[in-house]
Amino acid sequence: MNSGLEHRDFAESLGAYALGALPKEECARVREHLVSCRECRAELEWLRAGVDALPASVPQVEAPPELRERVMQVVEAEAELLRAAGEAADQPPVRRRAWRWWPSVSALRPSVVVTACAAAVVIAGAILSLSSGVTPGTRTVHAQITGPARVLGARASLRLRGSRAELVVSRLPTPAADHVDELWVQRGSAAPVPAGTFVVRNGAVDVARPVRRGDHVLVTVERGRGARAPTTTPFIVAKV
């Protein structure tokens, strides 16, 4: 117990602690108590959500454009230094140019996307490898991943059983808010057909359409609840 103070004393101070309104010494005592008191930790977490909501109550004022210029000038200069430092820099390796070819959303027209899908399929077809299934009648196909997802270490494979397919993913980047990942099945040179949407970081997702040998299963990121035709280039491609 700290300085003869009771649990109740600490509990009473949690609101002030969450608001950052305790003087340094008292703050340190509460912090010490929190290490050993699960009840207070849970209570603090509950109260903190109230504090975290306070910034949202603030009238929204547009940041001046010069602020962005100043911030990005420093950031770009430091990023350049990191690049120049190369392997000597104390940074994890990031393959910065891996997705430079990625087109902007505004530039994507359906025809361009279909062509991009076809190109992605051709590339993936050349790279994909098959491995033996884990259970009788089941086989697994490794999927090709491109773009930021690849840089972030995502993995994906397709588990096949008859005409049913299941996409198994790990470390998949979470789509931005108001976006989902969408599955597509593409047969030959036909337009890809929607096969379900998902937001899964690690796990398995059913492909909601039957597949057959030679089909391609694609994944794109789409806005809202998904699209009827891909609007972005597939970042996962697997050949059945």
Partner: peptide, 22 residues
């Protein structure tokens, strides 16, 4: 950045920021 970056959630973007991605 490109479309790919814009489609990432903040948490994944921070992973790239940690690697020095401006």
């Amino acid at each position: 950045g490109g479309t790919g970056l814009r489609q990432l959630g903040d948490e994944d973007l921070m992973q790239l920021v940690a690697g020095g991605d401006a």
